[in-house]
Write a protein that binds this DNA or RNA. Structure first.
Length: 448
RNA sequence: GGCCCUAUCGUCUAACGGUUAGGACACAAGCUUUUCAAGCUUGGAACCAGGGUUCGAUUCCCUGUAGGGUCACCA
């Protein structure tokens, strides 16, 4: 039989009982990448059959997060709106003897009747794309419950009916679902459905190698957004966590979404769990920050600084400092920290103890002399060519002639009054010629 | 505990029987800035153990060990 190429249809099936988990995001991403690559259809299916635990706010959070990561569904469903469909299947299953109504021990607020699947007790084997053949003996699974009643389907039933109705071709999900697969295959067979192809992704692990969970800190995608990570960086990081592009020695780490779609191979996804390395995420994020155009970055950084309740009093100094800030930060939020800690001297005139101007045992007189000479040099520089490079070029010969420490330290300190700051030339450039002259003059006057 | 999955530097990984076991993050050192970062350069760092198969195993098979997942009227 010449079967035509089957339409690829995949889905991500989050249950809205918590915020978008980083692991769910990765599963969604891998499904999305696979769909894009195979010209398939990507479906988001909200699995909200548990009325007690499902919350609209979580559904919103999940959808927002996915949309922020630019993972957009071609089709969207909500299980709570499909009760009638499940009901038909449950009735059919009961009618043909594949399921039965079971009387349960009443007590402790539990129901007295549920609907159980009649386990045929057989060996079920499926061929996992990532792991190869996996076999289970289903007899120890028992007659599991598939619904509380005709109008209240449970997880396995709803998944199976939907995967069938939605013609899902590939089920790509987390490794924690491997043990659910035999139950679902038996149900699929019972309703006469095709068995989709399965691919179980390795889990994302915490540093202690256990499944990543709330107690390990940030796991919600929205938290990463709030902490100044870029969606492109998260997508890039998640894509190479458990998968790496075919390489000839040199491995590429910074990949655009298009690159990933082009190079991705589901069969090449690794089998073992991967520890979530925040340091690497930060490094990747830094690479993406560097790609943002200066003007855009300026406004993003401005917004970050202002929302932190900090002020920007001199626009020119602020604009000049953007490349420096960009170079230093690996998340957007760090911009405010840099502004507050290392660039505070741009906001207010330095206040310091006079002795701190003196480098080691240079002495007051020598320091004053050096500072005066620096002042002289800076005054000579034309405002139009007042750059860190130019200042350095002119100060260096002098500094080398009398000893660098005695020149560079007082220069930087008189300008900034801070223990930590950019180097003296950059500090002078950021302040501008006039302000630099003013601050160094003040330092000269303080030295007596 | 039963069942299932997994096993290369600290971490993410490359290698598809023969390599000085490669890269990235992290780490260390040097340079630079005589501050702190960033940046650049260099360096240290791994095949879980034992049996097979083979001329030859990190690679294939088995056993052990270790780690993980899962055992709901949750998903």
């Amino acid at each position: 039989m010449n079967s035509p190429v089957k339409q690829i249809r995949v889905r991500i099936a989050p249950s809205p009982t918590g915020s978008l988990h980083i692991g769910t995001a990765r599963t969604a991403l891998f499904n999305y990448i696979f769909a894009k690559q195979q010209s398939g259809v990507f479906i988001i299916r909200i699995e909200d059959t548990d009325k007690e635990r499902s919350k609209k706010e979580f559904e919103d959070n999940i959808l927002d997060g996915l949309s922020w990561l630019k993972i957009k569904p071609d089709e969207f469903y909500r299980q709570s709106e499909r009760t009638e469909i499940y009901k038909k299947y449950i009735e059919k299953l009961i009618a043909d003897g594949s399921a039965y109504i079971s009387k349960e021990e009443a007590g402790e607020g539990k129901r007295s009747e549920v609907i159980r699947f009649k386990n045929p007790n057989k060996a079920v084997t499926f061929n996992d794309i990532i792991r190869g053949p996996i076999t289970f003996e289903t007899k120890d699974l028992g007659d599991f419950v598939i619904a509380k009643d005709l109008d209240t389907p449970l997880y396995h039933l709803a998944v199976v009916v939907d995967d069938h109705e939605m013609k899902i071709s590939h089920v790509i999900r987390g490794e924690d679902h491997i043990s659910n697969t035999p139950r679902q295959i038996m149900l699929l067979e019972a309703i006469g459905a095709n068995i989709p192809t399965y691919a179980h992704l390795p889990l994302i692990l915490a540093p202690d190698k256990s499944k990543l969970s709330k107690r390990h800190g940030a796991i919600a995608v929205t938290e990463y957004r709030e902490n100044g990570f870029l969606p492109e960086a998260i997508v890039n990081f998640l894509a190479i966590l458990g998968w790496s592009p075919q390489s000839r020695g040199e491995e590429e780490n910074v990949l655009s979404f298009e690159d990933v779609v082009e190079k991705f191979e589901l069969e090449k996804v690794s089998k073992s769990g991967a520890v979530f390395d925040i340091k690497k995420l930060e490094w990747i994020n830094k690479q993406y920050i560097k790609k943002i155009p200066q003007e855009d970055l300026r406004e993003i950084i401005r917004e970050k600084i202002l929302t932190w309740g900090l002020s920007i009093s001199n626009e020119e100094m602020f604009v000049r400092s953007i490349p420096l800030i960009t170079e230093k930060i690996s998340t957007l939020n760090e911009a405010s920290a840099v502004w507050q800690e290392e660039l505070l001297f741009l906001e207010k005139s330095p206040k310091y103890d006079v002795e701190k101007l003196i480098w080691k045992d240079e002495g007051v007189f020598k320091t004053k002399e050096n500072l005066s000479k620096i002042l002289e040099i800076i005054q000579m520089i034309d405002s139009s060519e007042f750059s860190a490079e130019r200042i350095k070029e002119l100060i260096f010969p002098f500094a080398d002639s009398v000893g660098r420490g005695g020149v560079l330290w007082p220069m930087r300190f008189s300008l900034t009054g801070q223990e930590k700051s950019p180097d003296p030339f950059m500090s002078a450039y950021l302040l501008g010629k006039d302000e630099s002259i003013l601050r160094i003059s003040q330092a000269v006057n303080l030295l007596k």
